[in-house]
Nucleic acid binder design. Sequence first.
DNA 1: TTACGGATGCTTGCATACAAGTTCTCCAGT
DNA 2: ACTGGAGAACTTGTATGCAAGCATCCGTAA
Lengths: 238, 238
Amino acid sequence: MKSDRNLAGGPPALSSVGRLRVRRRTSDRVYEELAAAIRDLRIEPGASLSETDLAEQLQVSRTPLREAIARLVDGGLVSVVPQVGTRVEPIRLHDVEQARFVRESLELAAFAAACEKAERDVAGLRSLLAEQERCHRAHDLDGFFAADEALHRQVFAMSGHLGAWQLMQPMKMHLNRFRRLGLPDPEAVRVLIDDHTAIVDALESGDAAIGHEHISRHARRVLEAAPGLQGRYPGYFA
Amino acid sequence: MKSDRNLAGGPPALSSVGRLRVRRRTSDRVYEELAAAIRDLRIEPGASLSETDLAEQLQVSRTPLREAIARLVDGGLVSVVPQVGTRVEPIRLHDVEQARFVRESLELAAFAAACEKAERDVAGLRSLLAEQERCHRAHDLDGFFAADEALHRQVFAMSGHLGAWQLMQPMKMHLNRFRRLGLPDPEAVRVLIDDHTAIVDALESGDAAIGHEHISRHARRVLEAAPGLQGRYPGYFA
DNA sequence: TTACGGATGCTTGCATACAAGTTCTCCAGT
DNA sequence: ACTGGAGAACTTGTATGCAAGCATCCGTAA
């Protein structure tokens, strides 16, 4: 029953960062695999896990697995009840809304800061927009998702607050997991790309007010799909 | 050398939450103790830790200790180099600035949302202000710190985004650790309380513009003390 | 038929032993 | 005196065994 989860895929334990040969800890590898699996909904919200089963599937002992789970619990993606069980937290619209609020607030602030900057080279953003168009036409959801993330990240980088983007990542897991549910709708993706275009235009012209408007609307779109998704995947929600 | 760190103090492993008797995991207890010790600078920035020593001091085995450390690493407070050592991350002004940016952005957004609310009962905020005054006179830094946190938290609660406050907590560790360095200055505390008072006044009258101004200035004060502190505690900084 | 009780199998929590790697020290040789 | 190398002593990483608690199922008795 649990064995049909598509995890792992065994990357090498040795990776090279630059010239330096770095040994990656099993515990880190396990964490990343689990986090990615939860984010991509390959492990369903609400699913119950078993340390022993997971350890066997991933071919590791329980020790590194437990350390990975401890980190996931910290991020709010997993809950553990001692002597009872471990499970992936269901999607809570309240948490999604709180994460959305955080994201909107930070993006607005980052956009405003980016508008202040003297040189605003939006060439990179334009190419990311083109990539999003390409993925949209090719129905490449994962590609679109990556380009979407890259675009928003780039705005933070231009604002000089890339660190804030990184600090925001853990909490964004809740948001991303929810977003992925509604992403298969091509029309929704079309709207998102139009939003992005408008935002980049505003940034290029340095119009903070217009950008503010578009970002705010863009961020609030996420929850629009909530009722439909909740009806379609009732088991995924709390 | 390491044995003079004032950790632990062995609280009971059983705590009562409401009527329910809950067994607290040692791993959680260890995490909270370490996080508090790092936040309160009882473990100095840059200090090197030893899993074996720490485990002995805290009277636990390395397993729960390591799970706690894994969470601290995730929060960026501790770094681990395999087969070499574990150490408390030094204070990086860049990280502090990024955390400050996040905090300012969120507080501005929360304040604006709170101003929109119909009922704005600032009585609780007023009593927290009084408590801050009291702690200031009594030179009770820990008390002031707690009341400070409570005040800012209350604004988030009034805005309906208490969840955002909670999501922000992990990253705020960097900010708090830095703030505590400069807190012993009574004059600085005086200014902070005046800021708080102005913010509460603005909230009571629902004046978002004035509040925005005060919150922004309040948030930016943190970094003012940076050069002096860096000169006084050079070993604490990266 | 229903209610109660105990055994069994599951779960996670913790401690310990061992493995692998790095750094430091000290001694020998030049 | 200085350099090099071998080894000891440390570090963290992982596996395994055991302990403790909860849920479920089955048997028994009313």
